[in-house]
Nucleic acid binder design. Sequence first.
DNA 1: TTGTATGCGTTATCAT
DNA 2: ATGATAACGCATACAA
Lengths: 331, 331
Amino acid sequence: MVAQRANVSRVAVSRAFNPHASLKPAKRELILRIAQELNYTPDRAARALVSGRSHLVGVIVPDVCSHWESQEIDALTTALQAEGFATLLFKTRIDYSMDEQLLAYMRGFNPDSVIAFVENVKPATLARFLDRAVPIYVHYPRSGAPEESQAGPLHDRLNVLHRTGVEQAVSLLQGYGVRRIAYVSGVDKSRANTAREHMLRVVMAERGLAPPIIAASDFSYDRAYAATLDLFRVGEGADAIFAANDVGAFGVIDALRHELNLRVPEDVKVVGFDDIAQSHWKSYNLTTVKFDLEERVRALVRLILRRLNNPDAPALEETLNTRLVVRGTVG
Amino acid sequence: MVAQRANVSRVAVSRAFNPHASLKPAKRELILRIAQELNYTPDRAARALVSGRSHLVGVIVPDVCSHWESQEIDALTTALQAEGFATLLFKTRIDYSMDEQLLAYMRGFNPDSVIAFVENVKPATLARFLDRAVPIYVHYPRSGAPEESQAGPLHDRLNVLHRTGVEQAVSLLQGYGVRRIAYVSGVDKSRANTAREHMLRVVMAERGLAPPIIAASDFSYDRAYAATLDLFRVGEGADAIFAANDVGAFGVIDALRHELNLRVPEDVKVVGFDDIAQSHWKSYNLTTVKFDLEERVRALVRLILRRLNNPDAPALEETLNTRLVVRGTVG
DNA sequence: TTGTATGCGTTATCAT
DNA sequence: ATGATAACGCATACAA
């Protein structure tokens, strides 16, 4: 800032960097040129102090290297960066809970918005720790259409509709004459897991199929692998297996092929959830219920920007659908 | 801050949150209790403005979902968080270059330190955009021992020694009578790639082996897959393949098994670099040159803290070694 | 130990 | 269109 004085006075510099401020074009150009020569950038901390906008978006995640999460963080960071925001990463414990200490810690950085890849934290808890920021919740409506918004602290919602993709998957399996379907679950109480299990149950019932056999797992490769062994060695086995996510499906496939000597898809068919980038790798080539990542990130960014442009708006919503991607593990 | 006035005066609150400030323990306790009740946290933006420390560590990465990167970011975030820092994520273009626009953008956030997962940016360029922050460079000494620090702008160094792991791998392969060894490369000019190729070349020469056949790739699954097909269909094939990273090795393995109908390890042996978490998955079960992630992150954090505690110190260094992890793709 | 005063770099308000 | 001044929330030097 001091450096600029060599040329003009002080607030002009501020205006030069704010496109909507009134300043003579020639002067603005001059200032920006000199700023570049001097490697000057406005200090965002100071700007945040007076404007109340940090241009920071907090992302809370239990495990950055989970495939889905890392891919979403990647796309999100790209999209946010294009809008002038930066991603602030926080790790919570692996058990999908959220401790208040972390929230207080994050609060100090004053994020403009917060996206939590964590499920069992109540809106009330989150709201208590966020002043201006309105949390975004991922919601899984049980029926086909979004439900009424309920009461409670203000929060925005991203609705993800599982029905379409699950219907397509069950229909496909049914076409192959599958009878016994198992579900290798995700983390027990997680919302994604319960939503997926519930939708599977509903769709199977509608189509006259017996309820799925539940094999408890936690979204990880290793536990899905072990759960599959149990299913066939201790339990009754299955003709087809839904895994709560793609990584779990990889564990299922490897257990079937490399430990149980069963063929996929001839002996057992496997369907995942997510459609992460690895799902097309030849060793798996997984048929899976796709959640479109790009679409999802765009929806999130829209929510953030709409909220920031209109802090007092009532609850905002965006809705996403799913669909089946057919590859080689069903057939 | 205003809220605290209900109880005591103003600066006492500031002191209460700075452990080394002098304040009567009882008063500090009282203030902290009330702060918690009122959900008060000191504003880091304001703190940064006066103290010159943002407690932000910038991480620049071309692709968050690369396996190694995501795992390193994960561990790094955990470690930094424990020290009171937060990870600020920036995405650069995928071509491993670094544009100055991004650097200027990042500079505005005033990170205390910057870790760049980007290779072809010169220290001089980086230094120009960082005021206080001293960049950390990952360096791959060509001999066994760290080299002399060269001149140029001040930067700290993390030395990674490839020799040990590569020697173990080549020795193992030689024991199996391997003759023709290929190297499926990483991104052409990247430092990690050239270091790995060079060390492989040196070690093989020392052991009387012909130079490796080079198959050009870019660290990705897909290009490694294609490069392997070329190697066997157009080129002369190989008895053993080094891939520049584990993900590339997965592509190599899948191409060999699923497209070329070759057995791994019976027909072709495969060795990767990194030892990412997926390398123990049964479909790959990869023998690989391990870079210990935890150790690496600890070294990085040490470098950051040492530099922050002593901003004017001369160039700092940490050194890491590698070793071979033997699994199922050599044997 | 504790309070008062000052300044960090920026934007907003009010003036010109 | 441009400049002066206050204010944002905090830490620090100094005084008490």
